[in-house]
């Protein structure tokens, strides 16, 4: 998966702070993610975990520090933000499928607009990834006709269609009914097995234990703890991590 042209790490964040007006959402974040690594970020709501990954593809912009993704430093006036984003796929909590486009066109649109692929080729790629998320038979339906779990799988396929090197997941299962959580997690586990670089904000600790190389715990805009799953779950170093784990496990 890794491209040799890049200098090693998929994501390098150094001393990043993020403000919303007067409110500081992130404090002095340092984070390095290597290619092929799977990182899970957890923490209470409002801890800044979503904001952190949204800073990685410039849906939010940071005010201090540096963010380097795929060897490109991000800043407010990054001219080649499109080049950065095409290598980062993002999956949202509320799916954000385009309701007026069929499943197939949801997946084909960006390929046709961004990569200027012809229609047939775009659809072929789309079908490949719809098969990967095990939902090819729904290709002609509109998102509104699918269940939440199916929609999220389509959203994953849609992000994969640009063949990104990094995938960001922003609480992908939080908006789902409980019985649909597993089909999405299974899809993500399958994706992890392909060696994809993944950064996931999630509270699914079973998934984290099974897939993650590292787990990050955030609170009040700071990274409090960062460890391998084994240590993170059995021997958390910080009081706040313990409290948090006690609440959700």
């Amino acid at each position: 998966m890794t491209e040799d042209t890049n200098t090693g790490s998929a994501v390098v964040v150094e001393g990043m702070s993020k403000f919303f007006g007067d409110f500081q959402a992130l404090y002095d974040i340092d984070l390095t993610v290597d290619y092929g690594e799977r990182v899970v970020i957890c923490g209470p709501s409002g801890s800044g975990k979503s904001t952190l990954i949204r800073c990685l593809n410039q849906l939010e912009s940071h005010q201090q520090g540096t963010v380097v993704v795929n060897g490109t430093e991000l800043s407010e006036n990054t001219k080649n933000i499109e080049d950065v984003r095409r290598n980062i796929g993002m999956v949202f909590q509320s799916f954000n499928l385009f309701p007026h486009l069929s499943v197939l066109d949801n997946c084909a649109l960006a390929q046709r607009r961004m990569l200027k692929k012809p229609k047939a080729a775009a659809r072929e790629t789309a079908m490949k990834y719809l098969e990967q998320v095990k939902i090819p038979e729904q290709r002609d339906k509109f998102p509104g006709q699918l269940s939440g779990g199916q929609q999220q799988r389509v959203a994953i396929a849609r992000a994969l269609c640009l063949e990104p090197q990094i995938m960001l997941f922003d609480e992908p299962t939080s908006a789902l009914d409980p019985e649909m959580v597993n089909e999405v997690l299974d899809t993500m586990i399958g994706l992890a097995e392909t060696g994809m670089t993944m950064i996931c904000v999630t509270h699914e600790m079973g998934f984290a234990r099974q897939v993650a190389d590292r787990i990050i715990f955030m609170d009040s805009g700071r990274i409090v703890e960062m460890n391998e799953p084994e240590i993170f779950f059995t021997n958390p170093q910080h009081e706040r991590t313990k409290t948090f784990l006690g609440q959700i496990l």
Binding site: N57, L59, E82, R85, R86, I88, G89, M90, F92, S94, N96, L97, F98, L109, A110, R113, M114, R158, A159, L162
Partner: peptide, 11 residues
């Protein structure tokens, strides 16, 4: 969210 999704897909 629709606009964010479009942005993240490089439109």
């Amino acid at each position: 969210g629709q606009i964010e999704a479009a942005q993240s897909l490089c439109l």
